[in-house]
Design a binder for these strands. Structure first.
Length: 503
RNA sequence: GGGCCGUUAGCUCAGCUGGUAGAGCACCGGACUUUUAAUCCGGGUGUCGAAGGUUCGAAUCCUUCACGGCUCACCA
């Protein structure tokens, strides 16, 4: 029998870690619990600053407060020393003196390390140099920290460590904290707006027997008891529309989608999507809704509609530009094209622009490729692109006067697709045909096309779905825009990474 | 998946044309009762990402691999 490898919790015990473990043992031996269960504070640090920030340098307020937080700085000065601790609301200086604490307790406190979490009680005062401080009268160690934090001046810069050990990133880099807090504000604002407009938030399956509602390669998982494969959803769309068939009229879901595709600065395998459905509305209503919603989120989270993204101004105020796809190709690509041209002509134009067309591509797909190649990246200011080709919009209603295109738009900002919406296809017979066409694409080897017709969805449509507008917004990308982050990984608390290398 | 770049102390980084690894902060010991990146004195704590190869000698040159970043492809 092979010998079990010894369980090793930490890979390398460094000198600093050894010393901290020794301190831990010493504390335990002296009867101290270095990992306490609870601590009651009278104030957040921000409150103390609010209340006493204006007192004069040198002034003693006599006011006793109890605060708690992580030690960030220690300045030992002989018989009187300083520390800085921070809690969720801010940071404040602690003043420790042998005179107040007594020699033993003073020395014990000075033996604590940067990173330790303490609770302290003392009188608020301001030093001669004008630094608001707490003159510590009693203290308790709440949590002993066993690893050294990155240095105070340069902080933690290594991107890999920042993503893998986001907890350290959050302790050290205020910017990371701000981005994640902005994210929750944005999400909260979106829910608020929708709730205020009579939409109800619902939850639909993440585990789906057929991964539908988008064109993407799904993750496959397995249900043991049922003995079947399931897919992690690539979109909630088809279930949300079932709820519209069920006469809920206004629903939204703000949650994760999973797509088994490459990673990039704009793509994470799991990402957060908002989908909104409104009965008796069409894509134009959704355009208005989308514009209002994004503006509301920006105002709530950023406080302004005039943004800067990667040093370029982005102005969300005013009416957003609206262009059809074909118009945009002429305006931004300088290329006049139309569905009236025949397929070979369009194929030739695409080839001129370096697009490698596949045999089964039709006019719509070619035009969309041209749009993506020539236009999308240039749309920096918010722009709605409408009249998406039917060929690439299997779930949208075609325009009554032009079967080549659909009642659909995409919202492009900073060259990124932030949202898409359409007048939902409600005709079950048309829907079935489009599903069948998609399945055929899968058989051609398109792994992003569904491999199976969602017959239950068609059945639902047969009961009758009211005219409905549907909207999807990529929340991560919206957060990137509003927080001026270039990489999607910055706006995701734990972005996907390969497993850490083991040596 | 392709291309380019990177990986050196806990952190941030230097290390030239190959000569046996260095700074600041952190840490350890000492001094200091109002400091502010405190200061002063003393101490370098390292599998130079990993494995091979070339060489008298490799952090440095070559190959492969791992991880990361950017980019192209992919991705409505």
């Amino acid at each position: 029998m092979e010998k079990e490898p010894e369980l090793q919790i930490t890979e390398n015990i460094t000198e600093v870690m050894k010393i901290r473990r020794q301190k831990l043992e010493k504390l335990k031996a002296s009867g101290e619990n270095p990992f306490k269960a609870k601590f009651t504070r009278t104030n957040f640090i921000e409150d103390v600053i609010q209340e006493f920030g204006m007192v004069e340098p040198g002034e003693q307020t006599g006011k006793v407060v109890t605060v708690a937080g992580r030690i960030m700085v220690i300045r030992r000065h002989g018989k009187a020393s300083f520390m800085v601790i921070k809690d969720r609301t801010g940071s404040i200086q602690l003043f420790l003196s042998m005179g107040v604490l007594g020699e033993e307790r003073y020395k014990e406190f000075l033996d604590y390390d940067i990173g330790d979490i303490v609770g302290v009680t003392g009188k608020v005062f301001k030093t001669k140099r004008g630094e608001l401080s707490i003159n510590i009268e009693s203290y308790t160690l709440l949590t002993k920290s066993l690893r050294p934090l990155p240095e105070k001046w340069h902080g933690l810069k290594d991107v890999e460590t920042r993503y893998r050990q986001r907890y350290v990133d959050l302790i050290i880099n205020p910017q990371t904290r701000q981005t994640l807090l902005a994210r929750t504000k944005i999400v909260k604002a979106i829910r608020e707006w929708l709730d205020n407009h009579n939409f109800i938030e619902v939850e639909t399956p993440m585990l789906q027997p057929i991964a539908g509602g988008a064109a993407a390669k799904p993750f496959i998982t397995h249900h043991e008891a049922l003995g079947i494969n399931l897919y992690l959803r690539i979109a909630p769309e088809l279930y949300l529309k079932r709820l519209i068939v069920g006469d809920l009229e206004r629903v939204y879901e703000l949650n994760r989608n999973f797509r088994n595709e490459g990673l990039s600065v704009r793509h994470n395998p799991e990402f957060t999507m908002l989908e909104v459905y409104q009965a008796y509305a069409d894509y134009k209503d959704m355009m208005d809704l989308c514009e209002e919603l994004v503006k509301y989120a920006a105002r709530q989270a950023v406080g302004s509609l005039k943004l800067v993204y990667q040093e370029q101004p982005v102005d969300l105020s005013g009416e957003w530009q609206r262009l059809t796809m074909v118009e945009s190709i002429e305006k931004y690509g300088g290329l006049k094209i139309s569905f009236n041209q025949n397929l070979d002509e369009l194929r030739a134009v695409a080839k001129e622009h370096g697009i490698d067309a596949e045999d089964h591509w039709g006019k719509g797909k070619l035009i969309n490729e041209l749009f993506e190649k020539l236009v999308e990246g240039k749309l920096w200011q918010p722009t709605f692109i409408t009249d998406y080709p039917t060929e690439i919009s299997p779930l949208a209603k075609t325009k009554p006067d032009d079967p080549d295109v659909t009642e659909r738009f995409e919202l492009i900002i900073i060259g990124l697709e932030v949202g898409t919406a359409f007048s939902e296809l409600t005709d079950p017979i048309d829907q079935l045909q489009r599903f069948e066409a998609q399945v055929k694409l899968h058989e051609y080897g398109d792994e992003e096309a569904p491999r199976q017709v969602d017959e239950d969805y068609v059945r639902a449509l047969e009961y009758g779905m009211p005219p409905t507008g549907g909207l999807g917004i990529g929340i991560d990308r919206l957060v990137m825009l509003l927080t001026d982050n270039y990489s999607i990984r910055e706006v995701i608390s734990f972005p996907h990474m390969r497993p850490e290398a083991r040596d």
